[in-house]
């Protein structure tokens, strides 16, 4: 290729413009979020939250959905600058949160008022629910430190 002209480009928007049936496991979990209630799913090793249709270690089908607490323990975290569309309007952490009484960990945001010095692995957190909930992960605005 010769010449100095730049190749053509055009703007585009990333979107997921489909409606899907999510099935009984994920459907119950998302429905629970709308009701302000977290659910886990029974497996041979314990209650898994968030619930998956299959046990990740063995591929065995998972069982009954059960309500679980909305409190937990941070098992890992990363501090990031807040950007447009993020769940927290100031700098915050993305974290893995082991929900009390469950195995596995939930990926969500943790708000510590922009002070990264307050983040530690092992810290205790609680879900901050939105008042208007529609059945998706953002029905939990973020997690916050339990006092």
């Amino acid at each position: 290729m010769t010449g100095t002209a730049e190749s053509l480009s055009a703007p585009y928007t990333v979107e997921f413009p489909f409606e899907r049936t999510v099935g009984p496991t994920i459907g119950t979990f998302l429905g629970g979020l709308r009701d302000g209630q977290l659910y886990g799913v029974r497996t041979e090793r314990g209650v898994l939250c968030p619930p998956l249709e299959f046990e990740p270690g063995t591929g065995a089908e998972t069982g009954e959905l059960v309500p679980v607490a909305d409190t937990g323990t941070v098992t890992s975290w990363t501090w990031v600058p807040s950007r447009e569309g993020d769940p927290v309007p100031h700098d915050f952490a993305w974290a893995l949160i082991a929900i009390d009484g469950t195995i596995g960990a939930l990926f969500h945001a943790v708000d510590v008022d922009g002070d990264s010095g307050r983040m530690t692995t092992g810290m205790r957190v609680r879900a901050r629910w939105r008042t208007e909930r529609v059945g998706q992960l953002s029905d939990i605005e973020c997690f916050e430190v339990t006092s």
Partner: peptide, 25 residues
């Protein structure tokens, strides 16, 4: 994952950041 992860739109390096901390710890 389109239900549990994508709707939260984490920063491009966030999941790797969690992995880095787990690896250090």
């Amino acid at each position: 994952d389109p239900y549990y992860l994508a709707p939260l739109a984490p920063h491009r390096d966030a999941i790797a950041g969690l992995q880095a901390r787990s690896t250090i710890e």
